[in-house]
Amino acid sequence: MTVTVAFEKARAEGRAALVGYLPAGFPTVEGGITAVRALAESGVDLVEVGFPYSDPVMDGPVIQRAGEIALARGVRGADVIRTVEAVADLGVPVVVMTYWNLVERYTGGGPERGVGAFARDLAGAGGAGLITPDLIPDEADEWMAASDEYGLDRIFLVAPSSTDARIAMTVAACRGFVYATSVMGVTGARDVTSSAAPALVARIRAAAALPGTLPAEQPALPVGVGLGVRDGGQAAEVGSYADGVIVGSALVGCLLDAPDPEAGLAALRTLTADLAAGVRRSVR
């Protein structure tokens, strides 16, 4: 299933899509695969697999910790691709989220290195696209070409501080969905959801509706809202105005805080079910 179809399916059910993030290689490569499969089986509409990076400037403490553990155990590009492959058969689209240097320097073990090799291997594993937290469309020529060549979605971020002109430019470069960062800050669960997010979503939709922003084959672009969502109640709230509710740190926290892997997976399933129920009870 493609990202676009997953969002359309949720829309047809009158609700927002639930997007869940977990890093590859955490707590181990096999453990990470088990966790991502559990996530996919517990009610998310789209899975994000993180490729841990040594310098994750967009991430808060929870995802940083998980990434450090994964890196200390030696997670590599090929492990990320293997994780994608292991969940791609579950009927839930999978995108990778990572920092740009890892894509630019990607080596899957073969002789080629770089953006083209990454795109080829990601598509070959059944991956649907890539979220790029530190790549803006202004610097993305190589990725635009590679994502076109391999038919991958490209999800860029917009922020409350983005100007209308930048939102329009970014929306035009996106495929699959656009990632709206709801707050000015890093990833991490928060007690209250953002007051800036509804206005940002409205600005994105206004930009997307301008004639000529989106290509004819992609008449609408769903808006996913991320940063800060931690439970079903917040998912319901964000789902009332966004097309997608993105949850990361709260899910990672289930595994990080658990006394043992089984308890972590149980907590992950429980939270995912709670979030999935949340997006289903939104008033839209």
Partner: peptide, 20 residues
């Protein structure tokens, strides 16, 4: 104008920082 010295430099940061 966008901060490139040949192929080097540029901006590889979260969009949230671009306005600043």
């Amino acid at each position: 104008a966008s901060g490139h010295f040949g192929r080097y430099g540029g901006r590889f940061v979260p969009e949230a920082l671009i306005a600043a």
